[in-house]
Each structure stands twice: as structure tokens, then as C-alpha cells.
Design a protein around this nucleic acid. Structure first.
Lengths: 201, 201
DNA sequence: TAGTTTCAAGAACGGCGTTTCGAAACACTG
DNA sequence: CAGTGTTTCGAAACGCCGTTCTTGAAACTA
């Protein structure tokens, strides 16, 4: 007997898509409930029914970012060169960050005062770690469950995150050559160091 | 003939101090013009005359953070152990971040939508780089102006920043042992790798 | 004391996140 | 076909934010 619902999953997806467009085009400051609702052709009340609150909307953006990055990482086919396969993870992540800097910042910085990701939220990043762990194990020739492998993966992810953050803020270097050279220096050095540490044990 | 100003540098310092207290106790969401003014015993108009706008207030917090960190780094006396001196920079930075996590986030994350640091703002970080460069040069036995030294310093700063960000968000590990082990693994590996790269050339 | 000039702060404005509430839209009954 | 009941929708309203303005007080000169 009731009137039909229009605030369904399809609308939720549309609101989310519009929010990300708004984020990329105008930064975090442009993502307001009114503008998001207007761009998606609905009302603010709909946004609040679908996402709970503004933090819920940003959390969905956060998850969508990890889903997109994971999808891109999964596409990269493994080759017979374990070292190149590992580097390609960081290259892919970097290109993702340069293509969608605002979305990347939602994932790894904190441009919305309303949303501070908690431990539960960061479980979304687990699938990305697993991709790194698999390739680290191949390079080090260790088991994927070996603490050495996991520790190395954390080291690499932390470094890549720091490098990308520095590049996005413009502090890694002025020219693209210096940026790339420093990325290469850092990643090569840590992989080399992790390998020798493994060889010694 | 005028009445004396009360909105002077002393009040500005007090407002800044109260802002940082408010930030550390209640997070970025607690730092509002009204609360800052109230806690400092003045009005919002005074805050705006002193800092221009909210972004100006946050920028001052940003600079104060770098000033405090630089002061702590300068205190650490150089010893005859170059390697230990380098590691102490990262230990000091880490302890600073754990002691003042919100202030650290203002410096390296972006918890205020109002303030996005630009290239000009990041020059405040230069003094911190110079401290790292000096100690990297000692470890690698290179000149402080050698590109190799500068590249290595950027690599190390990026890694430390990534490690601290991961630790603050709780993704580096559950127990403090695993966190410290991973920090040590990462920093040791990259320094080792940077040294061998330098030895080869 | 009167006049003049500067300053301080409370009130006001638009926009934000969020909630409320009356109207609208459907299915079913008589 | 009109009426009823139930559910959904969205315009408007609320409080708080950053920011600005207006009003009135304060301090100095003459």
C-alpha cells in the first residue's frame, strides 16, 4: 500500500558516484550534503537515510577507493620476474594516486574532519596487503605466513605510502626526474636491504 | 590618543596555545573560533584580526608543530656513532608523534578541511630535512650537497612518515612488539640498502 | 570636562550537518 | 469510483560553524 521507494541501492550508488566526482573536481570542501543531493537529483534527507550521516558518506567513499585500487592491483598479471611484479604494485598504486589524488587522500590522509577511520575501517585495506604479501613472499622466497614476509610487506607499504604522500604534497622533488629517481632509490634500497636481511638468516 | 591594543602578539601566542590544547584534547572538531576565543578569554573577532581566518589559525598550528619538532631534534647531541645518530632522529620524531598525535596529524595529514598546506607552507619542514641530511651524510660518508645524500634523506623521511602514519592509525601492528619490530626491520633495511648502493658506486 | 579617535565584543549573516513534519503516492476496501 | 490507511518523500527548520559588522566603550588631547 505504500508509495514506492526511490531511496534504494541504485540511488545510493548514484549518490556515491556523484560524491566522488564532486570530491575530485572541487576537493573535500565541495562535498556537502546539499550539493551531493542536488547533483544526484534527490534531497538531503535521502542522503541521510542512505548513509546515516556525513561520516557514513565519507566512509563509503573510503571503501570505494580501496575497492577501486584493489581492482587495479588484481588486474596486473604475475610474470616470471618476482622483483618486477612487486614493483608493479607500487607503480600501480602510485598511478592510482596521481589519477585520483583526492580519493587517495580520503584513503590515506584525513581531509574530512567528520570521518576518522578506525581499526574496523582499515580492514578494507587488508586485501591490498595480501596482494603485497604474495609478491613479497615470491621475492624473498619465503612463506606468505612467515612473520618476515609480513614485516617486509608492512615496511614496503609504509614506504610507498610515505613516498606518494610526499609526491602529492610536492615535497619529494621539483622535477619529475628527481621524484622518480628518489622513488627508485628508496624502493630499490629497501628491497635490497630486506633481501640481504633474509639471506643472512 | 587611541586606547591601547589588547590584540597583540602576546594574545596571539595565547590563542595559539589554547588552540593546540583544544586540538590535543578534543581533536580537530573541537577547534572552533568560538571555543578558541572563549578559552583564550577573548572574542572571535580578535581571532580573526590576529590570524586572518580559520586557515590562518591552523597554519600557525602547523608551523608551531614544526618548530617544536625541530627544537626536539636539535637537542639530540651528535655522538661518535653516526648510525645511532641517524636512528635517533626517527626515534625522536616518533616519540613526538605519539606524544602529540593531533599536532603531528596537522603537520603530516590534513585533518582540517579549511587548511591545505601549499609549497610555501612546507618550507617550514626544510629545517627538519637539513637535520636528517646532516646525519645521512655522516652515515654514507658523502657530502651534504651530494644528490645521493639528499635522495637518501628523502627516502628515509618518507619511510618514517609512512611508518608513523601506520602506527598512529593502528595498522602497523597490534602489539607494541610487532610495531617496534616492523619499524626496526624497515629502517634497518633501507639504511642497509642505501649504504650498499653507495658502496657500489 | 568635552571632543575625538581607536578598539573590543556581541549580534547578525549565510551555509553547513541534521531532523522534522506535512504532503504525496500507492494498495486496498466498500 | 471515492475513501482509507500506510509508507515514503522533500521542503523547511534548528543549531552550530566561519565570518563580518555595528554599536558602544575606552583612552588620550586640549
Amino acid at each position: 500500500m505504500p508509495r514506492p521507494k526511490t531511496r534504494d541501492d541504485a540511488l545510493k550508488d548514484q549518490v556515491l558516484t556523484e560524491s566522488i566526482s564532486l570530491l575530485e573536481s572541487g576537493g573535500a570542501i565541495a562535498v556537502t550534503a546539499r550539493r551531493v543531493a542536488s547533483d544526484a537529483g534527490t534531497s538531503t534527507a535521502a542522503v541521510y537515510e542512505l548513509f546515516g550521516d556525513k561520516a557514513g558518506l565519507v566512509r563509503s567513499i573510503f571503501f570505494e577507493g580501496f575497492a577501486r585500487l584493489a581492482a587495479e592491483l588484481a588486474v596486473v598479471a604475475p610474470s616470471d620476474d618476482a622483483h618486477a611484479d612487486l614493483m608493479s604494485v607500487f607503480d600501480t598504486t602510485r598511478r592510482f594516486a596521481l589519477r585520483s589524488p583526492m580519493l587517495f587522500e580520503v584513503m590515506f590522509a584525513r581531509p574530512f574532519t567528520e570521518f576518522e577511520p578506525g581499526p574496523k575501517d582499515f580492514e578494507a585495506a587488508t586485501q591490498i596487503y595480501s596482494e603485497v604479501i604474495r609478491r613479497v613472499a615470491a621475492v624473498l622466497d619465503t612463506s606468505e605466513t612467515d612473520p618476515t614476509t609480513v614485516d617486509a610487506a608492512h615496511a614496503l607499504v609504509a614506504l610507498d605510502r610515505g613516498l606518494i604522500a610526499a609526491e602529492l604534497s610536492g615535497t619529494l622533488g621539483r622535477s619529475s626526474e628527481s621524484v622518480e629517481r628518489r622513488r627508485n632509490t628508496a624502493l630499490t634500497a629497501i628491497i635490497d636491504g630486506l633481501c640481504t636481511a633474509q639471506d643472512r638468516s
